[in-house]
Simulated assay, not measured.
Amino acid sequence: MLEATPHAQTGKRGKRVEKLAAQRSGLLYYLVRDRYLYLFLVPAISYFFLFKFVTLYGELIAFKDFRLLQGVWGSQWVGFKHFHILLASPDFWQVLRNTLLLNLYSLIVAFPAPIVLAVLLNEVRLHWFKRSVQNMLYLPYFISWVVLGGIIVSLLSPSTGVVNSLLGLAGIEPIYFMTDTGWWPVVFSLSTVWQGAGWGTIIYMAAIAAIDPGLYEAAKMDGAGKLRQIWHITLPGIRGTIAILLVLQMGKMMDVGFEHVFNLQNPAVFSVADVISTYVYRTGLQNAQYSLATAVGLFQGVIGLILVLIVNKAVKKLGEGGLW
């Protein structure tokens, strides 16, 4: 038999290499290779599938005159009737205004807070002090709003609260923080910072850690001080992270958070503290108007999606990656 020429052998070997490379570039190859890592995603994927995608079936209630005994399919189809009722209700426009204003206050006050804290902590050189501050910042994030709300109410009590006791020592009359419509949004915004700033700091600290230390060394050689290093290196280095978190924050502009508001509000401040989440709770669970409550939730979700799309496009126009 004639032996294959060296050129033919090289060609066959090249084809085998190409075939092996094609197999390794397939999705199945990476799923098998990293199967144990993908197992960590199973709980998160299961959560979103069960509680975010499967539950979309229930949005049909917004377009029906839902009766519990008749079920979703058995209830009468009414189209956009409940949306018309919703948009014609003055109560809805008040809770919509309150929701947007409280989220705007939180965006102005709470969104920059973890950025500032992360930058400051990054400059701390005493490791024991840095760890202690980080632990104190992270702790409120893992405490329920039932507990945090009770702490805030106790601290701001006009008779026994620490804050009003200190104001009394300064000759200032007690301030009714929790029942004053002017002070309540301030308390809400500052409590948002207290509870969430620590978690945001973790994300920004991780982003800062990814910045090349050589950039700081070069800046020092050029005579740049700490403020210039922060302005020209640290902040530009985490700009992408800031942009992504801003897009995600805008998606929550229609959702203040039920537990937060519910544990701090009272009838005296309903005019500024009644938001969409508490309105849905009152309408759907207390008054059993399930279709109207579902219409509110669907409206909330659609507006949030539109805001995410708009802000994500604006971020990409500014040169950042965005969410997609």
Rank of each mutant, 00 (worst) to 15 (best):
M136F: 14
I115F: 02
V247T: 12
M136Y: 12
L41N: 10
W194N: 09
S165M: 01
L69K: 14
L96D: 03
V280H: 03
A224E: 11
G171A: 12
R228C: 07
M250C: 15
S277F: 03
V163F: 07
F299G: 08
G214Y: 04
A113I: 09
R16G: 03
V119G: 10
T179G: 08
F80V: 07
F80Y: 04
I242D: 03
I175D: 05
G251T: 10
F262R: 07
S157Y: 08
N312F: 06
V272G: 06
K64S: 02
A170L: 15
Y29N: 10
G58H: 15
R35Q: 15
D180R: 01
G58M: 15
I143Q: 02
L137S: 05
S89F: 07
D212H: 09
V308F: 15
K226D: 03
A62V: 03
L248K: 02
N135Y: 09
V280G: 02
T179I: 02
K316L: 01
Y105D: 06
Q9P: 02
F262S: 09
R239T: 08
Q249W: 10
Y216N: 10
Y141I: 01
Y105N: 06
I244C: 13
K81P: 00
I233M: 09
N135S: 14
R239L: 12
I175T: 10
Y204D: 11
G26Q: 08
R33Y: 10
V311R: 06
Y38Q: 09
D91Q: 09
M136R: 06
G200L: 10
A218Y: 03
Y204L: 12
T181M: 05
Y176Q: 14
V133D: 00
T55C: 04
E217Q: 10
H127P: 00
M178W: 04
G149S: 07
L31P: 03
G319T: 00
N103Y: 01
V163K: 05
V78K: 02
D255W: 12
M221N: 12
F188G: 13
A293P: 08
G200H: 11
L96A: 14
Y38S: 08
V153E: 11
R67H: 12
L117G: 04
Q289S: 10
